[in-house]
Design a protein around this nucleic acid. Structure first.
Length: 430
RNA sequence: GACCCCAUCGUCUAGCCUGGUCUAGGACAUCGCCCUUUCACGGCGACGACGCCGGUUCAAAUCCGGCUGGGGUCGCCA
């Protein structure tokens, strides 16, 4: 049975477009139970870098796109040279200036494309092409044809930018008496707001998205939606579900614009649907070495803090800023909270402190009961006491629910921070 | 310039192949309402598209042609 491949070139990082190409090729392979080959196109000895290869492999693993085989073109130069020599012997190629040129038997070329149907090229602009460069290394199109043929790749799944390469490749298949495979040319991804992906576009490398706090399953899910749909309204799938549902015929012909809004939504969906324990693990590994406070605090405390932000996170990276007040006491009151602090409720806060002090069990329900009693006695609206207390506890006017937050922070911290607010008002008074 | 690909709400899309069930469905974003101590989540609702012109047909988002628009490729890079 034929196989499917993804053929990255280690001359740069794995970018979002490459990841999507790989995803579709991978899904096709898994759906049809064909083998999936990772072919490293490292024929350009100058531009190919080990670190890029490393990064590409890590990114693919992170995304969950595994492969059955990996091949390196740099280890196959002998094969390419043999075919070049054979073509020379047959009079289909010739040497010039140290390079080897193939002569095309120019004719109409038809591509059988699984996504677009038949594509017809009337004529080719060139009659010949280099297959072995003057430095002895083989060219892309030549290697590609030989490897796709020898590795029994069918269909050839790749980006739309390769459509124009296909006619000359088909002529090469014919020159070497190879069976011509079918192709599946994927539409390209465009930058947000249209235009090419490369220009004026922030994050392109997959590793970048990882650093930004995106989950691999969310990225994969989003990429899948960018150009494919199951035909109904479902939008959230795991890789496993996707490989079962996948149908290459349902890939769109139109290039799709990338949207951070949608990616963010999907990422948030995955975070929300994740169990609390799972989210804790993800956060701990995301903040691995840089944030010892997360690892040093009691796991139980960490978990309860995470719970406060579970439905409030879009990316993992937001956790640090949002939860800062849970791990340190030295925060300052945010400027946007100034308005809330204008109204000095020293008397009410003092009363609240006194009542909270009496609590022996500092849980959400009891805290709320006490809080509402104070509000009643003071004869003010709940929200007028809630807002300044939140600022006192977190430094910000927006944040998690007040009472669950108080329970998590604990009596001591709550009382300290309320007292701190009283002092703040005192100082301001002078 | 040449060759090729594409064309449904702002964005991602369903529908198109096998014309009528489409006063075009869903999602994101936006806006409003509800929930509510803020934010978020959740619920409800609003806004919003078949690029244009012809043709075929009793009937076209769906088929055909042209135009326009967008994209890709024209390297001894991959």
């Amino acid at each position: 049975m034929s196989k499917v491949r993804f053929a990255p070139s280690p001359t740069g990082y794995l970018h979002i477009g490459g990841a999507r190409t790989c995803l579709f090729a991978w899904l096709y392979a898994r759906h049809t139970a064909k083998g999936f080959v990772l072919r490293i196109e490292d024929t350009d000895m100058v531009r190919s870098k080990k670190e890029y290869l490393q990064e590409i492999l890590e990114s693919l693993q992170w995304l969950g796109l595994d492969w059955d085989d990996i091949e390196y073109q740099s280890e196959r130069f002998d094969i390419y040279r043999d075919y070049a020599n054979k073509l020379i012997e047959q009079g289909k190629a010739y040497k010039k200036d140290g390079a080897v040129f193939i002569k095309y038997d120019v004719q109409e070329v038809r591509i059988n494309d699984l996504i677009r149907g038949e594509i017809v090229f009337q004529e080719l602009p060139k009659q010949e092409d280099v297959i072995i460069k003057s430095d002895g290394s083989p060219t892309y199109n030549f290697c590609c044809v030989i490897d796709d043929s020898l590795m029994d790749i069918d269909p050839v799944v790749r980006g739309e930018d390769h459509i124009s390469n296909t006619p000359k490749q088909i002529l090469m298949y014919r020159a070497m008496d190879f069976k011509v495979p079918s192709f599946a040319h994927l539409p390209l991804i465009m930058a947000e707001g249209g235009g090419r992906m490369s220009k004026r576009f922030g994050a392109t490398a997959i590793s970048e998205y990882r650093k930004l706090g995106y989950l691999p399953e969310a990225i994969v899910n989003y990429l899948l939606l960018l150009g494919w749909s199951p035909g109904d309204d479902r939008e959230i799938f795991s890789l496993k579900e996707a490989s079962e549902l996948f149908d290459i015929k349902r890939i769109n012909k139109t290039s799709a614009a990338f949207s951070f809004d949608k990616l963010n939504w999907i990422n948030g969906e995955y975070i929300r649907k994740m169990s609390l324990d799972e989210l804790c693990e993800r956060l701990l590994s995301f903040y691995a070495a840089d944030n010892p406070e997360f690892h040093d605090c009691p796991m139980d405390y960490f978990k309860r803090v995470v719970e406060l932000f579970h439905v409030r996170l879009v990316t993992l990276s937001e956790f640090m800023d949002k939860s800062r007040f849970c791990f340190c006491d030295d925060f300052v009151y945010n400027n946007n909270a100034a308005e809330v602090l204008d109204n000095k409720l020293s008397k009410e806060i003092t009363l609240l402190i006194a009542r909270l002090k009496d609590l022996t069990v500092f849980d959400k329900a009891l805290v709320e009961t006490v809080f509402r009693q104070v509000v009643d006695e003071a004869g003010i609206k709940t929200k007028f006491l809630v807002h300044p207390v939140r600022v006192a506890l977190t430094g910000d006017k927006i944040g998690p629910g007040l009472f669950e937050m108080m329970e998590v922070l604990g009596k001591e911290k709550v009382l300290d921070r309320l007292t701190r607010l009283l002092k703040y008002w005192e100082v301001k008074n002078v």
